[in-house]
């Protein structure tokens, strides 16, 4: 729970900071997308179903049949 709250707090602070600086919309969208992904991963960690990158790679390789 703590890491999720921290992540949300930091993200909110970042948005306020960069929002004041009037960064271009494209940059802000990228920032939003990345933040959302990070927070989603933390939320998934809490319910014990996180995205496992290696498992993803393994699945792709298994489908392609290299290993």
């Amino acid at each position: 729970m703590t890491p999720l709250l921290l992540a949300i707090l930091v993200t909110a602070a970042l948005f306020i900071h960069y929002g004041k600086q009037r960064r271009p919309l494209k940059d802000m969208l990228l920032l939003a997308a990345l933040s959302l992904a990070g927070i989603a991963q933390f939320a998934l960690l809490i319910v014990d179903k996180p995205v496992r990158l290696p498992a993803l790679i393994a699945a792709v390789i298994d489908v392609l049949g290299f290993a």
């Binding site: 940059d27 920032l31 990070g38 496992r52």
Partner: peptide, 22 residues
Amino acid sequence: MRSGGLIAVPLAILIVGFAQSM
């Protein structure tokens, strides 16, 4: 983008999230 500073923190958060579920 001009520099990577903007996305550094959210990327770090994402990486910390991934690191726990490797």
